[in-house]
């Protein structure tokens, strides 16, 4: 089947989901991101790659943090950035998605970063845009959030480079998390042999085992001897019906406290995609503790987004140079 993310030569054309991305492309993105980590540590945190290009952040759903990191990433590549919160603009006046996109194309945008509450929105836009425009999915419904998945994997690789010998546990609301799916795909593609999910039955998708993960319903067993603990946020805004008794009850059973974390390996790292619900899924002392890499994740997120944009933005003739 044709992968809409890749061009005729198998190079990255859009970034819509990690599913179906070959290992070669994942490694290309992660290796390129290493270069951009260094750029952020310089006095002048800017490179000229996307000079003269216009990146449009089209956010049909609000997400200040994701939008900000894409904006910083684009600006550090010297692109001009337009931010559109469509929820508060034309769509409330009745304009369709494609009309909004067509207007931006007419303004000579070169890249779209799309966030939408509906699964598949970024795919839909990618199929519509002309050849010279790339689309990056910045989160679509419950479906995918590929740059978050990539930045998490990048963080894992930086702290635990030997990915073929890792035990990784994802804890929490897998059902509503678009990050979890992206992460599971990326981790297994890059050779992590054991990915676990730890969650109450009500917060797991019905076919979760099909993703190639081991399922645990209690923290103690699930965290035993893991190298990486990836906490997921309780997606309050996506909850419908009574999936959970109460936040306090959830914290007692699935909250990450230091006592729980001690079941993992002593050098295990703790990750969280943010924003955190302190005292609901994670205890403050763990979030701020020595094993936490939550803030480095944010820093690496910019490098990974720069890498994706830099790979997508260049090369009118096909293929990377060697």
């Amino acid at each position: 089947m044709h992968n809409p993310q890749l061009d005729a030569n198998g190079e990255l054309k859009h970034l819509l989901t990690i599913e179906g991305l070959p290992k070669r492309i994942l490694n290309q993105i992660l290796d390129t991101a290493e270069t951009f980590v260094g750029v952020a540590e310089r006095d002048i945190k800017k490179v000229p790659l996307l000079r003269g290009k216009t990146v449009c952040n089209i956010f049909f759903e609000n997400s200040t943090r994701t939008r900000t990191t894409f904006e910083i990433a684009a600006k550090r590549l010297s692109a001009d950035v337009i931010n559109l919160n469509v929820g508060t603009s034309s769509q409330s006046k009745g304009e369709t998605i494609l009309d909004t996109v067509d207007n931006l194309i007419a303004m000579h945008a070169d890249m779209f970063v799309v966030r939408h509450a509906q699964s598949g929105a970024a795919h839909f836009i990618a199929q519509h845009v002309p050849d010279n425009i790339s689309v990056i999915n910045a989160g679509d419904g419950r479906h995918a959030h590929p740059t978050q998945g990539l930045l998490d994997v990048f963080t894992v690789r930086r702290y635990k480079p030997d990915m073929h010998n890792l035990r990784v546990a994802l804890v929490g609301d897998v059902l509503h998390s678009r990050v979890a799916r992206s992460e599971i795909h990326a981790l297994t593609t890059l050779g992590v042999p054991e990915v676990r999910v730890i969650a109450p039955k009500t917060l797991l998708p019905a076919d979760v085992e099909k993703l190639g993960v081991q399922v645990f319903h209690d923290m103690k067993n699930g965290l035993k001897d893991v190298d990486v603990v990836m906490m997921l946020r309780l997606q309050n805004e996506r909850m419908t019906g009574a999936l959970l008794p109460s936040a306090q009850e959830y914290f007692k059973t699935f909250g990450l406290t230091q006592e729980m974390l001690n079941h993992a390996k002593p050098d295990a790292i703790v990750m969280h995609p943010g924003p955190m619900n302190r005292g609901v899924e994670i205890d403050s002392s763990v979030a701020d503790g020595s094993q936490s890499v939550i803030l480095p994740q944010v820093t690496y997120g910019i490098a990974v987004r720069m890498a994706v944009m830099a790979i997508l933005g260049g090369g009118q003739s096909a293929g990377g140079i060697s």
């Binding site: 270069t35 830099a310 990377g320 060697s322």
Partner: peptide, 23 residues
């Protein structure tokens, strides 16, 4: 240095795949 991020053929040829971080 890996001057790839400053090359003038990026628009035509894209980013090379075996980028090395400048340090």
């Amino acid at each position: 240095l890996d001057a790839a991020l400053y090359r003038d053929d990026y628009a035509a040829r894209g980013l090379k795949t075996n980028l090395k971080p400048s340090d």
